[in-house]
C-alpha cells in the first residue's frame, strides 16, 4: 500500500495538516488500512526531504500545513499512469501453506482448505453487508458522496479478491478429488482421501513436469524455470 502516493493525492486539491490527512485517508478507504498520525508525519517528513511537499504556514489553530510541490504533482501523475507491478507476486501465505500441505505427512488438505474457505466466505459475507450499506448511503444521497463511492470501490475490490481466493480453494479441492480418483479405486474421495490426494498430487506433478506446457497454468514470462511464481 502506498501511503506516500495516497497523501500526495490528498494534498493535490490544497494544503492540509497531518491529522486532517489521516482522517481523509481513512474516510476515502473506509478505514480498511488504518493509519496512525505517526505514520502520516513520518511519511510527510520523507516527502518533504524528497522535495514532494513543503511545510508552509499554519492554520488558525496552529497546525503546520503541508503543500504539494510541482515535483510532487508529477510524481502523483506518474503514479496514476503506472500500473501496479505484478511481476513479483507478493508472498502469499495461503498459497505457501497449501503448497506445504501437499506432501507434509499427517496433514488433511481438505480440512485446511475448508477452514480457509470458511474464513474467506465469512469475510465476503461481511464485506457484502458493508457494500449494501455503502450503496444505500450513496442512493440515499449522503453528505460526502465522494467518500462513499471511494469506499464502495475499495470494498468491491476486497470482495473480488476474496472471491478469487474462494474460487481457487474450490478449484484446489476439485483437483485433489480428481487426482485421488485417478489414483485408483483404492483411494476414494472420502474422508480418508486427502492424504491420498496429497500424495498422488505430488507424484502427478512430478510425472507431468517435463512436457507440461499445455496442461499447466502459464508461468509469467521470464519466470520459467523458477518453478512457480512464489519464489522471490
Amino acid at each position: 500500500m502506498s501511503i506516500r502516493h495516497g497523501l500526495l493525492a490528498l494534498l493535490e486539491p490544497g494544503p492540509r495538516y497531518g491529522s486532517q490527512l489521516r482522517s481523509a485517508f481513512e474516510s476515502r478507504t473506509g478505514a480498511t488500512w488504518p493509519l496512525n498520525v505517526g505514520q502520516v508525519y513520518t511519511t510527510l517528513n520523507r516527502l518533504e526531504r524528497d522535495g514532494m511537499v513543503v511545510q508552509e504556514g499554519a492554520d488558525e489553530a496552529g497546525h503546520a500545513l503541508y503543500v504539494i510541490t510541482e515535483q510532487g504533482r508529477s510524481e502523483l501523475r506518474a503514479w496514476f499512469a503506472t500500473p501496479v507491478d505484478r511481476a513479483n507476486p507478493p508472498r502469499d501465505e495461503l498459497a505457501i501453506k497449501l503448497a506445504m500441505a501437499v506432501g507434509t505427512p499427517g496433514v488433511d488438505i481438505r480440512a485446511v482448505i475448508q477452514s480457509q474457505r470458511h474464513h474467506t466466505v465469512k469475510a465476503m459475507q461481511d464485506y457484502t453487508r458493508l457494500k449494501a450499506q455503502a450503496l444505500a448511503a450513496i442512493e440515499g444521497g449522503g453528505s460526502s458522496e465522494r467518500d462513499d463511492i471511494a469506499w464502495l470501490l475499495v470494498l468491491e475490490q476486497l470482495i473480488f479478491q476474496t472471491e478469487a481466493e474462494a474460487r481457487w480453494l474450490d478449484h484446489c479441492e476439485m483437483r485433489l478429488i480428481r487426482l485421488s480418483a485417478a489414483a485408483g479405486p483404492a483411494a476414494p474421495a472420502g474422508p480418508e482421501a486427502p492424504r491420498a490426494a496429497a500424495d498422488s498430487g505430488s507424484t502427478a506433478t512430478a510425472r507431468t513436469r517435463p512436457g507440461d506446457g499445455a496442461a499447466e497454468p502459464a508461468v509469467p514470462t521470464g519466470r520459467r524455470g523458477t518453478r512457480g511464481p512464489f519464489r522471490r
Binding site: Q114, V121, M124, Q125, T128, T162, A166
Partner: peptide
C-alpha cells in the same frame, strides 16, 4: 461465493453431509 456472501449463513455440503457452516 460472491452470491453466497449475500446470505446470513453459508452451509457447506460435502458428500451429502453438512461439514461446516459460517455464522454472520
Amino acid at each position: 461465493p460472491r452470491f453466497a456472501a449475500w446470505a446470513d449463513r453459508v452451509v457447506f455440503l460435502r458428500d451429502g453431509a453438512v461439514v461446516d457452516q459460517t455464522a454472520r
